[in-house]
């Protein structure tokens, strides 16, 4: 494997006195798809939010694309340009149209001319299969459509990595598939992805590596075939039993 796109080395984080991340280490290679799972409160969202510095880690090292995350604002902004993020609650900008949501960052952060940014944006809307919604406001779209716009918005920055923070958890059941389909297509095209998700079917299909977390630690890290058929730890067996049991 060439240089990892993401490298976490003994990362520790506290929320006040609460120790959320305990010596978390992992690497994500180029084109690799990592699914992070675990019970709620296990720190899985916090890990990926540290990767683009939405949360600050207190100990250990995080490198993205060879750049180390420190307090340096310039470095943080450089890393954020390379890392796309999709949130559980979509977080589209409600005062801008879908198209403006997509062109804003390329235009202002990367200096892409509006015309070019618009063409790119339309191409990505095409790919998430909602080009006809370009001039609507986010509030006029369904949850599934909003999340697909959010994915397109992140892609418009041409990121090297995509982070997904429980992208389907806020969706009605009938809309989950349309979002997962987009994510699967993206995986097939070779995008490097880190997903926090409970969608084990999706994990089985696309993941190269499953990372199982509990109480702020990485308890298990193995290929999905092994993880699902033969989990090593009792915690993982318990967890899988609970979410696959019914």
């Amino acid at each position: 494997m060439s240089d990892p796109v993401i490298l976490l080395d003994q990362v520790n984080k506290w929320f006040g006195a609460f120790h959320v991340l305990k010596d978390v280490s992992m690497t994500v290679g180029k084109g690799e798809k990592v699914v992070v799972c675990g019970p709620s409160g296990s720190g899985k969202s916090t890990v990926i939010r540290c990767i683009n510095r939405l949360e600050e880690h207190q100990k250990g090292r995080i490198l993205v694309n060879g750049i180390e995350l420190t307090g340096d604002v310039k470095m943080i902004e450089r890393i954020r340009k390379e890392v796309g993020m999709v949130f559980q609650s979509f977080n589209l900008f409600p005062h801008l149209t879908v198209l403006e949501n997509l062109t804003l960052a390329p235009n202002w952060v990367k200096g892409t001319p509006v015309k070019e940014a618009t063409e790119t944006a339309m191409a990505y809307l095409e790919r998430v299969r909602i080009p006809e919604q370009a001039n609507k406001y986010p509030g006029q779209l369904s949850g599934g459509q909003q999340q697909r716009v959010a994915i397109a918005r992140a892609l418009c920055m041409k990121p090297k990595v995509m982070l997904f923070d429980e992208p389907t958890s806020a969706l009605d059941p009938e809309m989950i598939k349309e979002v997962l389909d987009v994510m699967i297509t993206l995986a097939e095209e070779g995008m490097t992805m880190v997903c926090v998700t409970h969608e084990m079917g999706f994990a089985r299909t696309v993941a190269d590596k499953m990372v199982f977390m509990a109480e702020g630690r990485i308890v298990e890290s193995s290929p999905p075939a092994e993880f699902f058929s033969n989990p090593k730890t009792e915690r993982a067996q318990q967890f899988l039993g609970q979410i696959l049991g019914h």
């Binding site: 683009n52 510095r53 949130f87 804003l104 960052a105 952060v109 992140a154």
Partner: peptide, 15 residues
């Protein structure tokens, strides 16, 4: 404003 609006802007690399 919801915190998500700040985070989404940050995540996109806006200054």
């Amino acid at each position: 404003l919801p915190k998500g609006q700040y985070e989404a802007a940050d995540a996109l690399g806006l200054s």
